[in-house]
């Protein structure tokens, strides 16, 4: 499954990302960045409420497939800019991380 399919099926809002054809291999939830940095796997969907520029940095370095901002957490303007520069896909949902993770686990 790729991010495009995930976004369509779970009705996620696309905040950033032109090409959504990135394969998804798993999922990781967390808001503490150095925790995420070392535990999230390449290709994971990352569920978080952290929409600042540092999240984008972590997403780039950890090579996650995309960031999903849960509970409609806001994306900072400078974070959006950095994400555009680095081709990081960012999605948003009103669901919380638990609900989102449960839905994703049924799909992959």
């Amino acid at each position: 499954m790729d991010v495009k399919e995930l976004a369509e099926k779970l009705e996620l809002k696309v905040l950033c990302g032109k090409n959504l054809e990135r394969e998804i291999s798993g999922c990781y939830c967390g808001d503490l960045l150095s925790w995420v940095m070392s535990r999230a796997q390449e290709g994971d969907v990352w569920l978080t409420v952290m929409g600042n520029i540092n999240s984008v940095g972590v997403a780039v370095l950890a090579d996650v497939a995309c960031i999903v901002l849960t509970e409609n957490a806001a994306l900072d303007e400078d974070a959006l800019k950095r994400a555009e520069q680095n081709d990081v896909i960012i999605l948003q949902t009103e669901k919380n991380s638990y609900q989102m993770a449960a839905a994703i686990s049924k799909m992959i």
């Binding site: 503490l32 150095s34 925790w35 940095m37 070392s38 600042n52 540092n54 999240s55």
Partner: peptide, 16 residues
């Protein structure tokens, strides 16, 4: 509040 301060940075460096 930005997501730092887990106290995992240096242990991560050691690990990797």
């Amino acid at each position: 509040s930005l997501g730092f301060g887990a106290g995992m940075g240096l242990p991560n460096i050691k690990k990797y």
